[in-house]
Amino acid sequence: MPEPPEHYYASEPGVASSRRTIDVVLPEVRLRLLTDTGVFSFRQLDPGTRVLLENAPLPPIRGDLLDLGAGYGPIALAMAHRLKRRRVWAVDVNERALELVRENAAAAGLGGVRAALPDDVPEDVRFAAIYSNPPIRVGKAALHDLLLRWLPRLLPGGAAYLVVQRNLGADSLAKWLAEAGYPTRRLVSRIGYRVLEVQPLRSEQ
């Protein structure tokens, strides 16, 4: 039976564990990753995540990176592979997902990856870039709260890159971000997904 969609953003998924491995092949990156039921897109690399990783640029400035809503870690590990001297925070509320990130990072020899619950990221850590395939299905209010928690932690000159399906509100999200003070533009549109580039608050640039 298909996995109920709410499981992947629960702190402790109710669905029984059933691990598997998948291959993630991207330009200059090849990873074999452990996944599990109860984690977002556990059967294969999500197509939106692929669009993000194939089109979002490397960070414009030096500093830590954030993978927001990391799941089993494809974004965090791909960025850590590309930028081996950077620290990459893989943040998720799902404990099963975070354990997978830790195991995948260790297996890939990527010591710069830090898997953490949201409250475990030190308050003074700020980010050169945020990469995210955000959990749209948590609802608009929860999504807005999530973004307003993390976007203010962008460093001046940094940027966030969000991938959102067009038919799940990518354009309305871009409009809301701009109205909230975050300059936002559509970076690319592929196979029904938009990659949005979000700049820091105008007052913080």
Rank of each mutant, 00 (worst) to 15 (best):
Ala159Gln: 07
Ala129Ser: 13
Val88Cys: 07
Val125Ser: 04
Leu83Asn: 05
Thr49Trp: 00
Arg50Ser: 05
Pro27Arg: 00
Glu28Asn: 12
Leu68Ile: 12
Gly109Ser: 05
Tyr182Met: 02
Thr49Asn: 04
Leu154His: 11
Leu110Thr: 02
Arg102Leu: 06
Leu168Asn: 00
Val93Tyr: 00
Val138Phe: 00
Arg50Asn: 01
Ala76His: 06
Arg32Ala: 13
Leu146Tyr: 04
Arg86Phe: 11
Pro59Lys: 10
Gly181Ala: 09
Ile75Ser: 03
Asp23Trp: 13
Val15Arg: 07
Pro4Glu: 01
Asp64Cys: 11
Leu65Tyr: 04
Leu177Val: 07
Arg20Met: 08
Ala108Ser: 13
Glu197Leu: 03
Gln199Ala: 14
Val195Cys: 00
Asp46Trp: 04
Gln165Asn: 14
Glu179Asn: 07
Val121His: 05
Leu68Met: 02
Leu100Arg: 10
Ala160His: 04
Glu123Thr: 14
Ile61Ala: 06
Tyr8Ile: 11
Arg185Tyr: 13
Pro156Ser: 09
Ala160Cys: 06
Lys140Gly: 09
Arg153Ser: 03
Arg114Trp: 14
Ala142Gly: 00
Phe40Trp: 01
Thr35Ser: 08
Asp92Ile: 08
Leu168Ser: 07
Asp171Lys: 06
Leu201Lys: 10
Gln199Asn: 09
Met1Trp: 15
Trp176His: 12
Thr35Ala: 04
Val25Lys: 12
Val164Thr: 03
Val163Arg: 08
Val93Leu: 01
His81Gln: 13
Val51Tyr: 05
Glu12Gln: 14
Ala70Trp: 08
Asp64Ser: 09
Arg185Phe: 14
Leu53Met: 05
Pro200Glu: 04
Leu52Asn: 10
Asp120Trp: 09
Ala116Trp: 07
Val113Thr: 06
Leu143Tyr: 03
Asn104Tyr: 09
Glu12Ile: 11
Gly69Val: 04
His7Ala: 09
Val88Asp: 06
Arg82Glu: 10
Leu66Cys: 02
Pro4Asn: 06
Leu26Arg: 00
Phe42Thr: 12
Val113Asp: 00
Lys140Asp: 13
Ala97Val: 07
Leu33Gln: 09
Pro156Asn: 04
Ile22Gly: 12
Pro13Gln: 09
Thr37Leu: 01
Arg43Lys: 15
Ala10Ile: 00
Gly192Ile: 09
Gly69Tyr: 01
Glu204Arg: 15
Arg86Pro: 07
Arg96Ala: 10
Leu155Arg: 15
Gln205Ile: 15
Arg137Tyr: 01
Ala170Cys: 07
Gly73Tyr: 05
Leu58Pro: 09
Arg20Gln: 15
Leu147His: 00
Tyr8Asn: 06
Leu154Cys: 09
Tyr161Gly: 01
Ala90Thr: 10
Leu162Met: 07
Gln205Leu: 15
Glu204Val: 15
Gln44Gly: 06
Ala141Phe: 03
Val88Gln: 10
Ala115Ser: 05
Gly192Cys: 02
Arg30Thr: 15
Ile130Glu: 08
Ala107Gly: 10
Arg20Pro: 05
